[in-house]
Simulated assay, not measured.
Amino acid sequence: MSSETSTDQPPIRFDTKVAVLLRDDLETWQRLNVTSFLVSGLGSRVPEVIGDPYEDADGTAYLPMFRQPVVVFEGTKEVLKAAHARALSRALPRAVFTSDLFSTGNDRDNRAAVRAVGTGELDLVGLAVFGPRNGVDKVVKGARMHP
């Protein structure tokens, strides 16, 4: 790492936003689980959200992570459904987590559970979205910041 600290440089402003919207009736363990699954989907398909690999002062390498903050919101089932529709209408990269996925134990069964339900009938408990800041803000309209 250079001798300059992050305070020696102007703050970085992002034109894009990564947002996760969770249903407000989830248990704590579910919120954490859903969030981790959702953001893994974005990282795998939207390479520009991933920064450079990390390295500590001893030269030990670490995997890259998101290059920008992830903002987490919560809302009712209705807010989540509306956000999903807005994300689809804007064709923004998105990942979904449905309530059915709590009862599956592997990726194959997860995909089959989502595939078995029509878009409008998905019982969404989580949504991750990436895109232009103003577009993502419109998608999560009506949600509140996660406490």
Rank of each mutant, 00 (worst) to 15 (best):
T16I: 01
D123I: 00
G126I: 00
S44H: 14
P147Q: 08
E78T: 10
P93Y: 07
P53C: 03
T76M: 06
R31N: 01
S44T: 11
G131K: 00
N110H: 11
T16H: 13
R94K: 15
V70I: 15
M65F: 09
G41M: 14
M1F: 02
T119E: 11
L42H: 07
D25S: 13
V70K: 00
S6D: 09
A116E: 12
A95I: 01
W29T: 09
D107I: 12
R111D: 04
R108L: 09
V79M: 04
K81I: 02
T76Q: 06
F14V: 06
A128M: 03
A85M: 09
A57W: 03
L22V: 00
E4D: 09
A91T: 06
L127A: 00
K77W: 04
P132T: 02
A116M: 05
V129C: 03
D8N: 09
L26P: 04
A128S: 12
L80P: 05
V20D: 02
R133E: 13
E121H: 06
P10Q: 00
G41I: 05
S99K: 15
R90D: 07
L32R: 14
D52H: 12
G51I: 01
F73C: 02
E27A: 15
N33R: 15
S99I: 06
V70Q: 06
V46L: 03
K17H: 06
P11L: 10
F73I: 04
T76E: 03
G105S: 14
S2L: 12
R13S: 08
T35W: 00
L38S: 06
K81W: 08
V70Y: 08
S40F: 05
G51D: 02
G51S: 04
S89T: 10
R90T: 00
L88T: 01
V71T: 15
E4Q: 08
R115M: 06
L124G: 00
